[in-house]
């Protein structure tokens, strides 16, 4: 378990991490999800002890490690770049942290071979890193992290520099590799899809702060703010303006429905594209009409971008639907799937 308590980081006058309180557990992946520059790497370096904190505390398994040096924190870090000792064999690379720790030779061999088997590196143990493919180099770095048996493993966009096929392969393996090892696994990524695929918990990061943290599925279903709602959505989530008067919501681009728990006022509404369909899904559906701008067919799904008032909305539906670009088309949406946000972006209902 890693706990951050009001942790902040500053470089000069620039605040990189705003006060952050976060508790990360073992047993599942903890994904830090955010755009480049949102503070994922800064947060990892703080927890790893590579960068000093301006204020706050880091606790590992209840022990205050804020002042503890990196090597004493018993952690591993896998980078986006393939970092291995250039003139050591794969075996020596995996064994290096164990040797520094002064482990017995026979135990080192056992551990290295176990890690090598997990990552299919057995035939490459006596090669040098530069004789390996990118995927094998990164697997060597992962094997080093696994063999070390650390209290925390930080994976900082480890798949970013791999090609598509390898990335998928390794991503599937990752949760199994670290399962049952008792280490807190922290995985930084800028791709929402990875967070969904890896499961576990997700911390959404934006501009040096964690905006929402919880089980990834919960964040998907119940975003706490408009930014979180936008994250897990491809195509982008539909955003509109509603005015509520007397328990009746009126969408700016046309369409209205009854709402029960919203005070009168203006709200932002968000609804995912697959909840807007060209056919009725229930009796409660509201009809929305708009001019079709773009249509796309991907696999067995068809999507239509349509102009709804001032907003461009997207409908994503299973099956192939005949849309004519430029025509007015009717779409249906069940208001039960709408999420409402106040003007400051906070979720209200």
């Amino acid at each position: 378990m890693i706990e951050l308590q009001d942790a902040t980081k500053r470089v000069g006058n620039v605040t990189h991490i705003k006060p952050t309180t976060l508790t990360l557990h073992t047993g599942h992946f903890n994904v830090l999800l955010g755009a480049t520059g949102s503070g994922k790497t800064s947060l990892i370096k703080m927890m790893a002890g590579l960068d000093p904190m301006a204020s706050g505390k880091v606790l590992m398994d209840g022990q205050d490690v804020t002042r503890l040096s990196t090597q004493k924190r018993q952690i591993s870090l896998v980078h986006q770049f393939f970092v291995n000792y250039p003139h050591m064999s794969v075996f020596d690379n995996i064994a290096s942290p164990l040797r520094v720790a002064g482990m017995a030779k026979s135990e080192i061999e056992g551990r290295v071979e176990e890690a090598a088997d997990l990552l299919q590196l057995r035939p490459m143990l006596h090669r040098r890193p530069h004789e390996l493919s990118g995927g094998q180099q990164q697997r060597t770095a992962l094997a080093r992290a696994i063999a070390k048996e650390s209290r925390a493993v930080f994976l900082d966009e480890p798949l970013a520099n791999l090609d598509y096929k390898l990335r998928e392969e390794l991503r599937e393996q990752l949760p199994d590799l670290f399962a049952g090892r008792g280490a807190v696994v922290v995985y930084a990524t800028s791709e929402p899809e990875e967070a969904l695929l890896l499961g576990g918990h997700t911390a959404l990061m934006e501009d040096g702060r964690v905006t929402q943290f919880g089980p990834t599925a919960d964040i998907y279903r119940n975003p706490e703010n408009i930014a979180a709602a936008r994250v897990f959505s491809d195509p982008p989530i539909n955003i509109g303006q509603v005015t509520v008067t007397g328990a009746q919501a009126q969408l700016a681009g046309g369409g209205g429905w009854a709402v029960s728990d919203l005070a009168d006022g203006d709200y932002t509404v968000a609804v995912r594209p697959h909840r807007v369909t060209p056919y009725r899904t229930s009796d409660a559906d509201v009809e929305l009409t708009g001019r079709v701008i773009v249509t796309e067919l991907s696999g067995s799904d068809s999507s239509a971008h349509f102009q709804h008032g001032d907003d461009a909305w997207v409908s994503l539906a299973v099956g192939v639907h005949p849309y004519q670009v430029g025509e007015d088309h009717s779409f249906y949406m069940n208001p039960a799937h709408c999420r409402y946000f106040a003007q400051d972006g906070k979720r209200v209902a």
């Binding site: 590579l50 980078h79 770049f81 520094v100």
Partner: peptide
């Protein structure tokens, strides 16, 4: 990153 890796290894 190399120096960090070395630092982590001690």
């Amino acid at each position: 990153a190399y120096y960090q890796a070395a630092k982590i290894d001690g």
